[in-house]
Design a protein around this nucleic acid. Structure first.
Lengths: 346, 346
DNA sequence: TTTTTTTACGCAAACGATACCACTGGGAGC
DNA sequence: GCTCCCAGTGGTATCGTTTGCGTAAAAAAA
């Protein structure tokens, strides 16, 4: 019942050749005569020989596998990124193994620890919310593991990075809202240690500054995505509502935050956008169907995945150690819809 | 610059032991004295030894890796399934490699071909739209590869399967619509060769039958998801509109179809649900925010992924060949919202 | 003390493939 | 006719582990 896969030895024995010859014939070496190659190739095809990738990996010290570790798979942004990674990786002959940190630092670390066993040729990572300590990643990189960051990066780790122009993304969104007459613009941000939080917040604040609108700290709230995100957002919204000067617009600085806030606003029957407008980062492709259609800042997630993979493979396949690293900054797409267009009521 | 990972030999040399002893000590074999074990463990920890999974795999003929092949990763249903797979797999010490068929038969086949090289211990698969020929999968299974189907199955292939109670899901949805007074209920289905299409259509028709509503073939349309899905749906909707007896409700028999149809209805400014109601299969978790809130039939995707993984691992780790296969049928959740509640206008 | 058993370890052969080195034999060069 | 070359092939070590078998020393039984 147990299936014995056919090996190079089997075909060597059958053809009365040595394993070296077979191996070379299969890899189309110049040292092998055309006729032998043909005989081997034909027989291999006939008995449906499949090289054992594990044995190859062990020998060649390359697994042709890359890992992508993200916080949550079932999140449009990340699944689109992984889609991009997978698409390019398969094109280039690499396999993709995935792992989720579930936003936990220790899970992330144990994943990385496992990965450090050299079962993968490189890693694409978007760090968890909790990650503040990048020493493990640094060590991994120093040991020679190619690493590429995507979206959530570690600033002090020198390697290839692929990010959104986060600053501009929220600067432009905020500026748009200001142009449309909104003056009390609140920002709902994720945890402060994240690179994207800092950059997006900076863009938001710069836009206010450039338009001579003073920054109101009451309008800047942080929420930690997770099981209790809904409650946290509800609390924030309640807090906004109780302010003497309620915000007239809120901008969500991450996917979950934006849709979470919208959900809560709908639940609390806030008139959007008249009472409070909303826009924010999101990669859900159904936001146009929302009530009201949601204005979004969209990341080129698929593209980001592809670029990250491209860079990673370049790192992996480079002959000489690379010391010059690049940070690829992609531009967001702002899609304006009714959630910020006054006059159109819910 | 190149990093040389530490091997079992290094620690054997350093401790003046044989590699076998080290290996056994590390695996906590009874043949090794407690003190040796401790010495080895301590030293291994000190120099941060990580076993080479590739070498282990080659030796033990197990990769502790499972593959999940789906059509599209960036699809809420599949990403939720994969989330479930990944979660349980990691719990059980397995890695997950993913691959997308992009709904193409030949891509699917090349993936399976690669996988047949024994780089994975088992496969979880949801076949592509185009797949009608399961001979390759059959062969793979006969060669001993554990395979579990999820969602889109091959009926004539005997192995574990995890599916939704598709029949009941659409039977109940259709029945609900009938109870609510809808009589001209249309069904938007995917390609006919898919198991889920057949089952869902059967449930729909049975519900009509049981309520003495004759089946109108004009009301049953098939669309092939893909790049041109939007256009196809637009065409179908136009077709419905031109019917002397326009449908008063439409039920989408898959995720993309449901949201695609909703999008088109909104675009054509059809009053939902008064002019035409809509509900259907969907696993997007923001459907409550839609305009109007969309009634959905939700699959327990995460759970399906977990169950499939559970079954697959059982298959993998079983000592004796398994010949009795089970089909696990999970129940859908119907969430009724305003898209089918008359009186509430868009 | 001698014999038997047990304990704890080493040797060496695998797993499947690759690659360095050596070897064979037929043709070219002289 | 002899040497030399080289295309074409085989032998074998190796990648890092695991594991069956053998064996020394220590412990137990005699």
């Amino acid at each position: 019942m147990k299936f014995e896969p056919v090996t190079i030895k089997d075909i060597a024995k059958a053809l009365k050749l040595s394993t070296s010859t077979v191996s070379r014939a299969l890899s189309d070496s110049y040292q092998i005569s055309p006729k032998t190659k043909k005989v081997v190739a034909d027989y291999a095809a006939k008995i449906n020989y499949q090289p054992n990738p594990i044995a190859q990996s062990l020998k060649v010290r390359k697994s042709h596998t890359i890992a992508v570790v993200v916080s949550e798979l079932a999140n449009s942004f990340f699944s689109q990124v992984i889609d991009g990674v997978d698409t390019l990786a398969h094109e280039k002959g690499y396999n993709v193994i995935i792992a989720q940190s579930h936003e936990k630092f220790d899970i992330e670390e144990s994943i990385l620890k496992y990965l450090s066993g050299r079962s993968v040729d490189g890693i694409i990572i978007s760090v968890s919310l909790e990650t503040k300590d990048f020493s493990f990643l640094k060590e991994l990189k120093q040991r020679g593991m190619p690493i590429v960051f995507v979206d959530r990066i570690a600033n002090d780790l020198d390697t290839h990075k692929v990010i959104l122009n986060n600053y501009k993304a929220s600067y432009d969104a905020t500026t748009y809202l200001i142009k449309k007459g909104y003056r009390r613009i609140a920002a709902l941000a994720s945890v402060v240690n994240l690179s994207i939080t800092q950059e997006r917040l900076a863009g938001y604040m710069a836009a206010l500054n450039d338009n001579r609108i003073s920054i109101n700290n009451n309008y800047i709230r942080h929420c930690k995505p997770g099981a209790t995100l809904g409650e946290e957002i509800a609390k924030v919204l309640g807090y906004f509502q109780r302010l003497k000067q309620k915000p007239d617009a809120v901008i969500g600085l991450s996917d979950k935050l934006t849709t979470g806030m919208l959900r809560e606003m709908v639940r609390q029957k806030i008139k959007i956008p008249d009472e409070m407008a909303i826009m924010g980062f999101s990669n859900n492709d159904l936001t146009e169907l929302f009530s009201p259609p949601l204005s979004i800042i969209k990341q080129p997630a698929f593209e980001m995945g592809k670029v990250a993979t491209e860079l990673l493979i370049r790192l992996i396949e480079s002959k000489r150690p690379i010391t010059e690293f690049i940070t690829k900054i992609l531009e967001p797409e702002h899609i304006i819809r009714e959630s910020v267009i006054k006059g159109k009521r819910l």
